[in-house]
């Protein structure tokens, strides 16, 4: 799993720690990471990807907060054996169905791929942070 982490894009506008979180979740969904498997250490991963170790630490903390991984003191980071990640996968599948339907409807209205993408990005960028009420 070490070597299959992709280098995050620092200029994409998405914070690097979020990109890492996405990569871990995606790896779990696709089976590249299984329950109980160990993730790379914070320091080696930071060195391999040439990013700030604090960023890796932040991503791991967030993943632990969401229950996706467990941080075992002294031993490292491990994928949770919890039910919760599987719930996440189910939610993702449901979400994928919603997105597919929405994209079809937008295409039916004559919007092109780029336009659809812009709408989604604008919507996401304009959304308040998790936990805050929407305006």
């Amino acid at each position: 799993m070490d070597t299959s982490f992709l280098r995050p894009n620092p200029s994409s506008g998405v914070p690097i720690y979020l990109q890492l979180i996405e990569q871990v979740k995606h790896a779990i969904e696709t089976g590249a990471l299984r329950a109980g498997e160990q993730l790379p250490g914070i320091r080696p991963l930071a060195e391999r990807l040439v990013i700030n170790p604090n960023t890796v630490a932040k991503a791991y903390r967030e993943l632990e907060h969401e229950g996706v991984i467990e941080l075992r003191h002294g031993a490292g980071a491990f994928v949770s054996a919890d039910r919760r990640p599987r719930q996440l996968t189910n939610t993702m599948r449901a979400g994928q169905a919603i997105v597919a339907a929405t994209v079809e409807r937008l295409r039916a209205r004559g919007l092109g791929e780029d336009e659809i993408r812009r709408l989604f990005e604008a919507q996401l960028a304009g959304l308040p942070r998790k936990g805050e009420r929407s305006a």
């Binding site: 914070i42 320091r43 930071a46 060195e47 040439v50 990013i51 700030n52 170790p53």
Partner: peptide
């Protein structure tokens, strides 16, 4: 060089 800097802060 960047990698060297990153590994320095890792401690």
């Amino acid at each position: 060089v960047l990698q060297a800097l990153v590994s320095h802060v890792a401690s």
